[in-house]
Design a protein around this nucleic acid. Sequence first.
RNA 1: GCCCCCAUCGUCUAGUGGCCUAGGACGCUGCCCUUUCAAGGCGGUAACACGGGUUCGAAUCCCGUUGGGGGUGCCA
Length: 479
Amino acid sequence: MRQTFTSPPEMPDNPASPKAPRVRFAPSPTGYLHVGGARTALFNWLFARSVGGHMLLRIEDTDTERNRQELTNTIVDLLEWLGIDIDGEPVFQSDNRERHRQVVNQLLREGRAFLCDADNQRVPGNSLKDGLAVRFQVSSTQDMPATADRHVAFEDVVRGVVSFALSDMEDFVIWRSNGTPTFLLANAVDDTDMGITHAIRGEDLLPSAPKVQLIMDALGSQRPVYAHLPLLVNEKRQKLSKRRDDVSLGNWRDKGYLPQAMANYLATLGWGPPDDIEIRPMEEILELFRLEDVLKSPAFFDTKKLEHFNATHLRMLSAEDFLEQLEPWLERTAWTPEQFRPEVMEALAPLVQEKVRTLADVGRFVDWLMLDDPPRDEASWQKHIVNNPVAGAILSDAIEAFAEVEWVAEAVHQAALEVGERQGLKLGKAQAPIRVALTGRAVGPPLFQSMVLLSRDEVLRRLRLAILDSAPANLSPIS
RNA sequence: GCCCCCAUCGUCUAGUGGCCUAGGACGCUGCCCUUUCAAGGCGGUAACACGGGUUCGAAUCCCGUUGGGGGUGCCA
């Protein structure tokens, strides 16, 4: 009776536990994955992998118009990026159309559903007809006295017992007049056919659960265990939406966030490790995660905290891993491939790694070592050069000192210290105009180590240029 | 409107009847360190929504109120 997909996910059960749990992540193929969906996928995956179960992917393409493979690839890539591996090939809901049709006919024949026209008027007949929709007849629900206070109830892993009165439910559409199944029908049939044991999904789907269960009951299917995850919300505490909120997972990746940081952060939304240690490797989370510990209340997607997670994960990387992660970021920066100096990047990487919050920040820390004439940050330039009365003196003095000094970080450091002392300034103050003159910014990697990499001649050239470019009224160029 | 769900610092959370004058983290903030800071160290700020029960004892259990959210499509 039960039929499988034409290309079913062949998943040999774990011999040690013959009834290994099976979960699925079931996004629409919009070619876009938002952080809420990613969190749902992650929790499915955490559950599956922590109990030796299977993690499947089903693409809910009840409308088959669009290029499904291409759109699906984006989702699969993003999941893979996050570290979520899928068992078997993705399943396309649209491939199961014949099975859906057959089930609807069966429900029609058994009097559990009825045909209806565009005005929602009931039309006689007990098999599918072109141009007519089909509704499930809630009142046909058997095994319960017709007049009693009838409910469909289930035990949700995160919410406990949830119950809906049949009398509150309308006869709902399971088949559209355009010949496609609705989500309700497809969901019930596909979960059955895929042998899904646990349906872990967003709380926004909670009201649809009793309808899906009614269909499954009518088919004699075993209902999966449900777990409705708390929603991810914006600062106004509304469910995250593609339109209002910047929640595209791909965007975060492109902004220089590490997948392990994103996954780690997402795992703390609606769940917390018992030992209070939030930032940690996924292997540890896998060991600690329990579906029944998931919280019920919605969680705000806090980008500040995400940034902190990212900065911390960045610093946890080994030097080699940091450079490796950095690689794609070194190609889309201000400098040309010819200007890029890998040996400089490599030397500076450990210093930069301690400072930045995202991979995208790195370019701004090192670009002045690659570019011939790095851009100047106007605010820094004004503050530390133009409006600094001793800037000219410091720069002039620095030129003389740096021209002589042994070209190693320690000696340059010492020389800068002395330049400052001659102005009665601590190094912290004294280095500011030098930094801005050389790098164009007031913030960057430790100065003297990187200066050495720039070369003495170039340092002197930029210092002279800064003097020339600064207001001639109060600074006179020196030769 | 109706149905369903939720309720600990601004935010994410720990807490499952005594360990709680409520712990951690982000943020904010003070001080320190320092070669800048978007780094680091040490502090500070700040919460059990409200009202009734139950109990020797409640953030924890029950009821109600209020507030918030989700759903209410031939979307998913």
